[in-house]
Each structure stands twice: as structure tokens, then as C-alpha cells.
Amino acid sequence: MALLEINNLHASIDDKEILKGLSLKVNAGEVHAIMGPNGSGKSTLSYVLAGKPDYEVTEGSATLDGQDLLELEADARAAAGLFLAFQYPIEIPGVATMTFLRTALNSQRKARGEDELSTPDFLRLVKEKAGHLGISQEMLRRGVNVGFSGGEKKRNEILQMALLQPKVAILDETDSGLDIDALKIVSEGVNALRSKDRAMVVITHYQRLLDHIVPDVVHVMHKGRIVRSGGKELALELEASGYAAYGQDAA
């Protein structure tokens, strides 16, 4: 069984169906890219998998390492090893980033029946991971995402991924709002987390990100379904021809 396995997933918001029978299998060690025009349901897929309220699953299944994701609360899905890097990371004023990271990590450890990390161990771990991403101690003292630039927000997402060590990571438009230097740092951070035990799904509108995070498989999503899959060359083809081919058909 694949690490992440989605079968015939239907989901709607406010009675409007967005996912219309989506199926996807991602094995451990693989990085899959999902591309597609705006409004094809890419972000909805990430929210439904992560358990965002307001989305209703009407049909189908999704499992992580054989475990039924859809019956779990969002926090239990996180503890089970699902991580979502947000397209627009949320601000939490007054809560130091460091405190947030520590609470998150310990909550997950607790949920898995592991001991909480001691303060010195935690600080050592954060320092190491933050260093690789060029995140300063000063930034960690600031409120979560408060006053962060676009690049800092995305680096902070990757830092959380590095700390939480998920089994499945979904990166939603991680390249949006990044200049080329920031894109490089973030991509390096993601590449460092590629591992034979981990699966990644990279959602993106543009080919640009895939020059830095090279996928094993590329899928094209349209109108709530995967309509085409191929190797990394598919991304290049899309870059050349655009999404025009997916304008009116395949309803």
C-alpha cells in the first residue's frame, strides 16, 4: 500500500462540489507535483486532507500509512504524520514563534505517547534546523508570522516541517511570493527533507519551483480530478503550452 493513498475522493464546500472523484497514490520516498489551472481544486485537496472545517467529504477515502485520515480530527492527522505547508501562513500575535514550535512538537509527541522534549534538547534542535534555513534567533522570538516577509513566512513553514518530521508533507504553492533567492533557500530546505521514508506532494501553478524541487511524478489536476500523469517532462510541456488545453473540455 502506498504511504498516501486517495481513492475516488469527492468533497464540497457550501454544497458546491470541488473534488470530483480524485485518486492519487504516493509511495514513500517519492515527490509528486500537482499542477493545474486556478480553480482546479488544488488547494481544496490540501485542505481536505489536512481536515479543515467547512469542507465536507461526500465520497471516497484517504489513508496515510494505511490509517483512515478522514475519520481523524485535524490535530490527530498531524500527529499521524501529515503536514501542510500553507500557501498563506497564519499570524498569531503575542505567541513567540519558539513557543509555538515547542507546543506543536510536544503536542504531537504526547499524542503519539512519546515523552516531551526537554528544553535544552529542544533549543539545540531548533537552533540547528533554523540555522540551515537562515532563520535568526530574533525571528524566533517574534510572534508567529507577525511582521514576517513573504520569504520568512515560507522559511518558517519549512522549519516547522523540519522539526515535526512528517511522513507525508503537502506543500501548497510554496513558491508564491518568493523571489529567486528565497526560492532557492526554501527549495534546499525541502530537498534536505526528501527521504526514503517520506512522501511529498508539491502543489504549484508554475514549473519554476520544479526546477529546484525535481519531482518523480507530475499530475495535472482539472475540475477536481487528476486528468493526466507523467514524468517531470510533463511539467515542461505544460510550461510551454499552458493550461489552455484544459479550458473547456473534460467536464
Binding site: G51, A78, L84, S107
Partner: peptide, 11 residues
Amino acid sequence: QMFYCLQRGLS
């Protein structure tokens, strides 16, 4: 904000 926290594992 709630969803962000829950996604990171907080109850």
C-alpha cells in the same frame, strides 16, 4: 488560526 494550530498538532 485554529486550523493552523490544529494542523501543527495542537488540540
